[in-house]
C-alpha cells in the first residue's frame, strides 16, 4: 500500500469519510464553522444551499484543494494532514469532477484519461489505453478518443471528465455542480452517468441544484447556509417537512413554491 498508516478495523467498518469540527477561514472571513459529517461506504450525499454557503469549500477540503485551520478530516482511515504522502494517498482514492470540466486542452481525450494511470499508477501505455477505452465506452464516448477537448460539446466534456476520474479507480467521487455549466439538453446525459455510478455502489458527494436528481439518488441531503450544516435528512423527509426556517426559505426559492 502506501506510507500512510491504516487502521484496518476502521477501514473496513467505520465511515469512509469522517469530518470533525472543521473550521476554515479566508483571511478574517470564516467560510466553514464547526462542520461535522460522517459518510458511510457507498453512501450518496447531496449537498445543497444558497450561493456562498460553503458547499464548494467543504468538498474541496476533503482532497486538500483548500487548507483548513481547525478540526480533522479522516478519509478511509488516513488522516488528512500536512504530510504530503498522506495527501497524495487520499487524492488517489478520491476523484473529483468540476463545474468547468477542467480537461487538459492540449491532450487528446485518450491522453487526458491515461495521464494519471501512466504517471501515478505507473501503468504501461497499452494497458492504460485499454483501461481508458473501457471507461470511455461506459460514458458512451469511445468514438471521440482521438479528438481534443475543444472539439467536444459541454456534456461530452463532462462525461470525459468523469471517465478520467474513474480511470484512477477511486473509492469516493466528489462532484461540484457538475451540470451547472451545461445547456439544459446536456444535463440529462451527465446525470445519467452519475446515476449509473450510484447504482454500482460508488460513495458520492454531490453539490448540485438538481433537486430531481437528489430526490432519486441521494441517501441523505445536507443543507448548508453561511458555512454551517443547518440540517440533514433523507430526501423524502427533507422535502416533505424541512425543520429549519432557512431550509424552508431555500426550498421555496429553488422549487418555486
Amino acid at each position: 500500500m502506501s506510507a500512510a498508516e491504516h487502521t484496518p478495523a476502521e477501514a473496513a467498518s467505520g465511515p469512509i469519510i469522517r469530518i470533525e469540527h472543521l473550521g476554515k477561514w479566508y483571511g478574517r472571513f470564516q467560510a466553514l464553522k464547526d462542520v461535522n459529517l460522517a459518510i458511510a461506504r457507498k453512501e450518496r450525499i447531496v449537498i445543497c444551499g444558497p450561493s456562498g454557503s460553503g458547499k464548494s469549500t467543504l468538498i474541496r477540503c476533503i482532497n486538500k484543494l483548500e487548507d483548513y485551520q481547525e478540526g480533522t478530516i479522516v478519509v478511509d482511515g488516513v488522516t488528512l494532514d500536512e504530510n504530503v504522502k498522506n495527501i497524495e494517498h487520499i487524492r488517489r482514492e478520491v476523484g473529483m469532477v468540476f463545474q468547468q470540466f477542467n480537461l487538459f486542452p492540449h491532450l487528446t481525450i485518450l491522453q487526458n484519461l491515461t495521464l494519471a494511470p501512466v504517471w501515478v499508477r505507473k501503468m504501461p501505455r497499452k494497458e492504460a489505453e485499454a483501461l481508458a477505452m473501457r471507461y470511455l465506452e461506459r460514458v458512451q464516448i469511445a468514438e471521440q478518443a482521438g479528438k481534443f477537448p475543444g472539439q467536444l460539446s459541454g456534456g461530452q466534456q463532462q462525461r470525459v471528465a468523469i471517465a478520467r476520474s474513474l480511470c484512477m479507480n477511486p473509492k469516493i467521487m466528489l462532484f461540484d455542480e457538475p451540470t451547472s455549466a451545461l445547456d439544459p439538453e446536456m444535463i440529462k446525459e451527465v446525470l445519467e452517468v452519475m446515476a449509473g455510478l450510484a447504482r454500482e455502489g460508488m460513495t458520492m458527494l454531490v453539490v448540485t441544484h438538481e433537486m430531481g436528481f437528489a430526490r432519486e439518488i441521494a441517501d441523505r441531503i445536507v443543507f448548508m447556509d453561511k458555512g454551517e450544516i443547518v440540517e440533514q435528512a433523507p430526501p423524502k423527509e427533507f422535502f416533505a417537512n424541512p425543520k429549519s426556517e432557512r431550509t424552508k426559505l431555500f426550498l421555496s426559492q429553488i422549487l418555486g413554491r
Binding site: N63, R91, F98, L103, L115, A116, W119, V120, S165
Partner: peptide, 8 residues
C-alpha cells in the same frame, strides 16, 4: 487542481 485531484 484537476492534476492534483488525479493524484499527480
Amino acid at each position: 487542481e484537476a492534476g492534483r485531484t488525479l493524484g499527480l
